[in-house]
Design a protein around this nucleic acid. Structure first.
Lengths: 247, 247
DNA sequence: GAGATAGGCTTACAGCGTAAGTGTGTCAAG
DNA sequence: CTTGACACACTTACGCTGTAAGCCTATCTC
């Protein structure tokens, strides 16, 4: 699954061979950015770089290998959290940086959540994140939970947003056109929301930072008092243990 | 894009025609549950229901139409939040029910986040959710933000979990085998986490409810003081000292 | 009976990932 | 300068995909 290491024999550089694994991966990223992941095929990518399809296989072992390379290159663009400083600011910056990368590369979210990623950039990214949280006083288990919750938000939010086919400026008009499909008796509340968007009193824009800050604030409280988790009475009794030590 | 309406001419029922759109969709769901979405092709599905591939197109307009039908049937399995009762319990139950459905139908998360879904079940689902939050005192805008944050967690978490190729019982052993790939100097913290899992002091299991409860608790606080609201530039940070803005 | 129709069927096509084998420009060693 | 090896591009071919187009017939309505 790993693929080639890139430049094996160090210094050698032939005059003819301009194509490299890295060039193929970069071309694939550019192609997917511009035309979409579903359009990316080995034949079309080959055409884009000026060779025949099968020639690409001299540089990647399979299309999956190529996709792995694309993912790791994309993850390498994420700003790593700086260990030691204010953890909340660092994790917030990390999440926003990841979100921005995922918007730049609309294909990336889908690839990341649908395959195993153990490239060097991904490992570095996870390592820096855990390190930042550990430094902030979280246990390994809590750091693991926190990273997982934050990543769920990052990928989930971005996927939902990327899927949504409209620009914010088009929301109101789209809602107006969609309204007739929402009979008032059946879909009272969805209709109410749509009308709010039409009226201009709600933009319909969902901010990435809304859910992110809910999570960060909650994590901060857990960090402050890892034992007594919440003030809400009902359900969280048995669970509060797993909050801190997770057996 | 919509697809057929199902039974057009009401009462008619031929003796011969046993296949219906619904039967095709249900067969596809069963197929995808058992063998995976990537294996599902029109030819294989046709074989499974005992017809030729092209015969399926008498009941669905395209494979995309079939996938739309699968998604809406899956969403229909989610327990709707009951309007009027304790909103937090209702939203918690909704999220867990959705999560369970997504685990039953491992293909569903990916389909839901990667296409536009406006089937009746999805509309009902969204409507009931907004209604529940409105009833709890959230504004339309806040209800929208809340639903989006919760859904991001639901789909993001489930996708990350579904992608992960191991059973919890295998975590420790897998971590042991993976350890040599993590040089201690380069990946100090990730290695520390892996060792924690190996030692048995951290299961490695990430609970869906961990992030979910962080979000619900945060929403509850926002609901209590709706003035410190969503678009706040940076943080609702009176008490946590590490207030900071990370742009 | 006559005609319409729903819903099977076969055929065909362009595109996919990639296994397998061929040809050639460039290198290091003799 | 020759030679052998290798890197790397090439062609061909296979089985798979979704689906357009058209055919055939059992069953319905009149």
């Amino acid at each position: 699954m790993a693929g080639r290491t890139g430049k094996g024999t160090a210094g050698r550089r032939t005059a003819r061979a301009s194509l490299t694994r890295d060039a193929v991966v970069q071309a694939a990223i550019l192609f997917a950015d511009e035309r979409g992941l579903d359009v990316l095929s080995m034949r079309k990518l080959a055409e884009a770089v000026g060779v025949e399809a099968m020639s690409l296989y001299n540089h990647v072992t399979s299309k999956d290998d190529l996709l792995d390379g694309m993912v790791d290159a994309a993850v390498a663009e994420i700003e790593l959290p700086t260990i030691g400083s204010d953890w909340m600011a660092a994790m917030r910056a990390r999440a926003i940086s990841a979100h921005e990368m995922l918007l730049r590369h609309a294909w990336a979210s889908m690839l990341i959540v649908s395959r195993i990623n153990v490239g060097p950039a991904m490992l570095r990214y996870a390592d820096a994140t855990i390190g930042c949280l550990r430094e902030a006083g979280f246990s390994y288990a809590m750091a693991d939970h926190a990273m997982n919750a934050l990543d769920s938000h990052i990928y989930g939010f971005t996927l939902l947003k990327a899927n949504f086919p409209l620009e914010p400026s088009e929301y109101a008009e789209a809602a107006r056109q969609f309204l007739p499909m929402l009979p008032a008796e059946t879909y009272t509340h969805a209709r109410g929301l749509a009308e709010k968007v039409i009226s201009g009193r709600h933009s319909g824009i969902n901010e990435f930072t809304f859910g992110l800050d809910l999570l960060l604030d909650g994590l901060d409280r857990l960090r402050a008092r890892p034992l007594a988790r919440s003030r809400t009475p009902r359900r969280r009794k048995a669970r509060s243990r797993s909050a801190q030590s997770a057996r």
